[in-house]
Amino acid sequence: MPRSSRAAAKKPRLRALPGRSTPAPSSEPDDEALLAYARDVLEVEARAVLGATAGLGQPFVRAARLVRACAGQVIVTGMGKAGHIGQKLSATLASTGIRSVFLHPAEAVHGDLGRVARGDVILAMSNSGATEELLRLLPAFKRMATPVIALTGDTNSALAKGADVVLDIGRIEEACPMGMVPTASTAALHALGDALVMAVMRSRTFGTDEYALLHPGGKLGRSVQRVFELMRTGDTNPLVRDTATLTEVVGVMTKTPGRPGAACVVDRKGRLVGIFTDGDLRRRVEQGKTDFTVSVREVMGKNPRCVTPETLVMAATAQMRELKVDQLPVVDAEGRAVGLLDVQDLLAAKFV
Rank of each mutant, 00 (worst) to 15 (best):
Phe102Cys: 06
Leu189Glu: 15
Pro12Trp: 07
Val299Gly: 04
Ser128Cys: 10
Val148Gly: 03
Pro238Ile: 09
Ala36Phe: 00
Phe351Met: 08
Ile275Ser: 01
Ala349Arg: 08
Leu14Ile: 07
Pro238Thr: 10
Ala71Thr: 14
Ser185Pro: 00
Val148Glu: 06
Thr208Pro: 07
Pro25Lys: 11
Ala48Lys: 01
Gly288Asn: 08
Ala36Thr: 07
Ala91Leu: 10
Ala348Met: 13
Asn127Thr: 13
Val325Asn: 15
Leu17Tyr: 01
Asp120Arg: 11
Asp267Met: 05
Thr186Phe: 11
Gly207Ser: 10
Val307Ala: 10
Gly129Asn: 02
Val266Pro: 01
Asp112Gln: 00
Gly234Asn: 04
Leu14Glu: 00
Ile75Pro: 06
Thr317Asp: 09
Ser185Ala: 12
Pro329Ile: 07
Thr293Glu: 12
Phe351Arg: 10
Val200Gln: 04
Tyr211Ile: 05
Leu347Arg: 14
Leu239Gln: 04
Arg204Glu: 03
Arg65Asn: 12
Val181Trp: 01
Arg47Ala: 15
Leu89Phe: 14
Ala91Arg: 04
Ala71Asp: 14
Ala24Tyr: 13
Thr256Gly: 06
Leu137Trp: 03
Glu173Phe: 00
Gln344Ser: 09
Thr205Leu: 13
Ala337Met: 09
Ala106Pro: 05
Ala318Trp: 02
Met125Leu: 15
Thr96Val: 13
Gln58Cys: 07
Arg232Gly: 08
Ala262Thr: 08
His215Tyr: 09
Gly153Phe: 00
Phe292Cys: 10
Ser128Phe: 12
Arg62Val: 07
Val330Leu: 01
Val165Cys: 11
Val101Lys: 04
Val200Asp: 02
Gly301Asp: 06
Val265Met: 11
Thr53Met: 13
Thr186His: 06
Ser295Phe: 01
Leu346Phe: 07
Arg204Lys: 13
Arg283Trp: 00
Val325Phe: 02
Thr131Cys: 05
Asn237Asp: 12
Asp235Trp: 06
Pro23Lys: 07
Leu134Cys: 03
Ala82Glu: 04
Glu229Leu: 09
Val240Glu: 08
Pro29Gln: 14
Glu286Val: 09
Val101Asn: 06
Ile122Ala: 13
Asp112Ser: 06
Thr308Cys: 15
Arg47Leu: 12
